[in-house]
Simulated scan of single mutants.
Amino acid sequence: MTKCFAKRLALLATMAMMVTPAMSAQQDDGAPPPSKPGKPINAGEVLSGALNAMKVRDVKNGKRVPMYQITSEPRRLPAPNGLCNLETGPETFQLVTSSDAQATQLKSFVGKEISVKVDEIACASDPGQMSEAVITKWSLIRKQ
């Protein structure tokens, strides 16, 4: 009987330790207020940030293909997209590659800071997109 009691007590103690941090995190009143919307980005402007790569399944043929994403400060998109239904504007931007040459070019910069000149940008609309905004036409800017 004491073995059962000891097991139950150990289980309860473990559960209490797991729940306590979650509860204290929810009660944190020192959270910063929501930030202001990001500055606008229009066609022809430069977007800079860290380049990430992910593998996603292509909806057409089911193959795994690379997808590239820039993580940047929040930016507002031009009308009619605006803030992409976000409070501050999108922070993740998917770079759509139109050729194997563009994909190869990006591959060497994964994990590094890059800058791209944005020619066409819109809010993400397809359910499979991993970013908040999509840049369909862009060119890489070389740092000097």
Rank of each mutant, 00 (worst) to 15 (best):
S72N: 05
P127E: 07
R75G: 01
A10E: 02
C4G: 10
S35K: 15
P34Y: 04
V19S: 07
S125V: 15
A103T: 11
V65Q: 13
L47F: 00
N61G: 08
S108A: 13
M17P: 10
M54Q: 11
F5T: 02
G49H: 07
L86W: 04
Q102L: 08
A79S: 12
M17T: 10
V116A: 05
S99K: 04
F109S: 11
L47A: 00
A53V: 14
T14P: 00
T20Q: 09
E113Y: 15
L77Y: 00
P21F: 09
I141T: 11
F5H: 03
E87A: 06
P74N: 02
N61A: 12
T71Q: 07
V65A: 10
E87M: 09
A22S: 04
S125L: 14
I141H: 13
Y68A: 02
V96A: 02
P66Y: 03
I70N: 00
L47H: 00
N52Y: 14
K107E: 01
G128H: 13
F5K: 06
S72T: 07
F93V: 03
V65E: 12
Q94Y: 01
S115L: 03
E91F: 00
A124R: 15
R76Y: 01
G82Y: 02
K143V: 15
V96P: 01
L106S: 05
L86V: 08
C4T: 09
V56F: 08
C123P: 04
A31E: 09
T104Q: 06
F5Y: 08
A133V: 05
R8Q: 06
L83K: 10
R57N: 10
S35I: 11
A22T: 13
Q102V: 12
S99I: 13
G111S: 06
P32L: 11
K3V: 05
K39Y: 04
V110C: 04
R57P: 15
E45R: 12
Q102K: 15
K107F: 01
P37H: 10
G111L: 05
I141F: 12
K63A: 09
C123A: 13
P90W: 01
T97I: 05
K137Q: 10
A103S: 03
K143W: 13
G49P: 03
N42A: 12
G82I: 05
T2P: 10
K143S: 15
V134A: 09
P74W: 00
T92K: 06
N42T: 14
V59T: 11
K112E: 09
L140V: 14
A124T: 12
L95A: 01
P90E: 00
